[in-house]
Design a protein around this nucleic acid. Structure first.
Lengths: 248, 248
DNA sequence: ACAAAAGTGTTCCTCTTACACCCATGA
DNA sequence: TCATGGGTGTAAGAGGAACACTTTTGT
């Protein structure tokens, strides 16, 4: 019988999703920005080891802030990746050396975050050496990070159906089309615009503003906001608007 | 800045759900069956420390087998509980002593399992000193185990809507009423029996058998089985039958 | 014979789907 | 004036909700 494992290191890896009005994107970093020796060209998810006196959500929030400069962002745990061999020996050696620690094993916890992708954000992350890639175009990441990403996407899909988190990916004021594009991108489906509007408005999740798109070479679309009064009651629990609209 | 945490112990705690045809139950153990000194009368969830060369799902399966004698049971990770103070100093001391380990911190990972509650199972668990309690009647557990239980129930509810796991709580052959009772118990709702049958049969998830209930003092109900052909295709992904039936 | 749960049909109404044209703007 | 996406209505059909009585068994 093997002995109890006490010498584990625990890390968090964050899948940071963003939406540019067209495509769902995720933020990736080079293996080691700070250490060109180990930049093998592979991309990875932003992550970190947990510290003493820090919970996992706190560690994830720290990673998020380091990558994006943002605090108070929607952040949710997905799965744990605990295969003893998920980090091979040479990776492990490097990790121990890099952090100045000694460990036999690294268990990682996946998180996903939802951020508003505006030009300011893009230039901020660019300065950090990070890159926003279309989720559909990401095929290879180092270690098991591809698994972590796929898992996060699956969880995101379910969560969007059952909570109003989709609005975390949109600007405060947005067009109906942006919301429709978002759902189409996340689920890989197409929606009938007329029926989408009907169900959306009858569900009462949106409040119209008096503002419109500007500088577009077609009839400018009205901007809407999320109906915040949904949050005052216990309606969050019952938010299944998108499940109905997508008809799953 | 605090240093990187490497000396964590990782445990798993399992919420083992069972259904007796009427109520949803969970399996609880005394704090330390083996050690009467520490039996303070409080109940806890079955759990264990992870071992070297063991993944978390493997550790959870080990706990499950120790509690119920069952292998190959549906088992799913829920959340992680990582508050540095979730285990207080005296608990920590006891844990280190009991396991003969040295650690500063115990992070635990919640799992839930679904088992068929037949008389054999009940007597097996009774011999282990464990007890099946109605989930509705559980109000106090030691440490943060009540949080782990509540969390598992929430996850179970969502999962039941989106996958055929409900059938893991029923015998191989069951009546329509048992399935209805199960859904009513898990969600705390009431369903119209006629409409329930209509939707259930039209969804094609059940196959009828030629068998009936026996020794009941009313018209015996026909026994049904889960339509296994659902699994051959990719239908598992699209299983939303109960979401439709419950109309969420 | 009685108690207890099984099993069955219909009507009404709501919600979903499918589908085509005019409108406002920038270039 | 043209190209582009915004924005609207209707008709037909499917699916959901509400509801009461007969059947079969054990006692």
């Amino acid at each position: 019988m093997s002995s109890v494992q006490t010498n584990s290191a625990i890390s968090v890896d964050c899948v940071i999703f963003g939406f540019d009005g067209e495509n769902l994107k995720a933020l990736l970093v080079r293996r080691r920005n700070a250490d060109p020796l180990y930049d093998d060209g592979g991309h990875k998810l932003p992550g970190a080891m947990i510290r003493e006196n820090e919970t996992l959500p706190e560690a994830a929030a720290r990673v998020l802030e380091a990558s994006t400069g943002l605090k108070d962002i929607y952040l949710k745990q997905t799965s744990i990746f605990s295969d003893p061999d998920r980090v091979d020996q040479s990776e492990l050696q490097w990790i121990c050396q890099y952090h100045g620690i000694k460990t036999d094993r690294v268990v990682t916890v996946g998180y996903y975050a939802l951020v508003k992708l505006d030009p300011g954000m893009v230039s901020y992350t660019k300065r950090q050496g990070a890159v926003w890639m279309n989720v559909d175009d990401i095929h290879h990441l180092i270690m098991d990070h591809m698994d972590i990403l796929s898992d996060a996407l699956t969880v995101l899909q379910k969560d969007i159906l059952w909570s109003p988190i989709a609005f975390n990916l949109l600007p405060k004021k947005f067009t109906v089309r942006q919301l429709q594009n978002l759902l189409e991108a996340v689920f890989g489906i197409e929606l009938d615009n007329r029926n989408f509007r009907k169900k959306l408005f009858s569900a009462g999740v949106l409040v119209e503003t008096d503002e419109y798109e500007k500088h577009v070479s077609h009839k400018p679309a009205r901007l809407y906001q999320l109906n915040k009064s949904l949050f005052s009651k216990k309606n969050i629990v019952n938010f299944s608007t998108f499940a109905r609209i997508i008809n799953i």
